[in-house]
Amino acid sequence: MYTVVAADVAKLRNITGAGMMDCKKALVEAEGDFDKAIEILRKKGQKVAANRADRESHEGAVIAKVNEDRTLGGIIALNCETDFVAKNDAFVELAHELAEQAMMYASKDEFLASDFHGMTVADKLIEQTGVIGEKIEIGTFERIEGPFLGAYIHAGNKIAAIASLSANVEGAADAAHAVAMQIAAMNPIALDETQVSQETIDRELDIERELLTKEGKPANIIENILKGKMQRFYKDNTLVHQQFIKDHNISVADYVKSINSDLKVVGFVRTSLA
């Protein structure tokens, strides 16, 4: 008959992240067989996951990563049910590790099916649901490629962003980080006016046109006023035209040009829990 050894419990806990008592019980049931014990813990996770499938998982950690040459990046939201779990060091560490792997895959489905320490990412999430006792899942999945990327994760891991610059020049690393911080803070809807959807433009025009009509503005001048209103809208809501958060006297585009006259912002992604 298998006798529980503390070193075995510690080893299984290190492999799975499960609690001491859960590891001890799994080893006893498996009669010391590690692979069988891991499978027992995984099945427990499946049972917990099934019971919590309809629970909301609005908390979690949003993590952004870029590769070594800064040409590939990604953001994931590892969601859970409570802020208590979201702040747990082991949970945040798992989110970072998963984000590092996520950027290598073109889609969320490919990422979930990929190998993660001998099991799929999807199975790892089920396992951790059993370990933690809360619904754990991948929420948002974003991936970006570009000439030169910089990432920013806001304190508390609730917002993350990646900025893409046009070239790897002197000062680009600091600039990309600063622009990513801008994206996280100001939540632009598009890179510039050419990338704002027609649906958004039409909605803004309808809102402003209705307000101007109620103010009694003559119909023949409303369209001219609308041009100015939309210029203001683009300035407030598109990244390159926004006031730079570190210097309100210049735009984001002007800031990037101050690093290098040929440097431009060419793309971005942003994710938040809210």
Rank of each mutant, 00 (worst) to 15 (best):
G73K: 07
A61I: 07
A30K: 08
A49F: 10
E100P: 00
G118M: 09
L125I: 04
R52Q: 11
E81S: 12
H58K: 15
G74D: 10
C80R: 11
Q46Y: 13
E31I: 00
V66N: 10
G73M: 11
E97Y: 01
R55D: 13
Q101W: 01
V66A: 13
K65H: 12
G60E: 09
V66D: 10
A53Y: 06
R70E: 03
V66M: 12
I40Y: 05
C80I: 04
E59K: 09
E29V: 06
K108W: 00
H117A: 13
A95C: 09
A61L: 09
A102M: 10
R52H: 12
E29M: 03
A37Q: 08
V48R: 13
A99M: 01
L78N: 03
E68V: 13
I75E: 12
T82R: 08
G45L: 07
A61N: 08
K65G: 00
F34H: 04
E81A: 12
K43W: 00
E93S: 15
D89Y: 09
A49P: 10
E81F: 08
E31F: 01
H117W: 00
Y105V: 05
A77E: 15
V85R: 08
I63E: 11
E31G: 01
V85Q: 05
V28S: 08
E29C: 06
N88D: 14
A90I: 08
G60L: 12
E81N: 08
I63A: 11
E127C: 01
F91S: 11
C80Y: 05
A77V: 03
A90T: 13
A37G: 09
R55Q: 14
F34K: 02
G60P: 10
N88H: 07
V121T: 06
Q46N: 04
E31T: 06
E127I: 03
A49T: 05
T120I: 03
S57R: 02
V48M: 09
A122Q: 11
V28T: 14
K87H: 14
A30N: 11
K43M: 03
A113H: 00
M119K: 15
K87P: 10
L112I: 09
E29I: 05
E39S: 12
H96M: 05
S57K: 06
E93M: 02
E127T: 04
D115I: 01
A30G: 08
V85I: 15
R55K: 15
I76Y: 10
R70P: 04
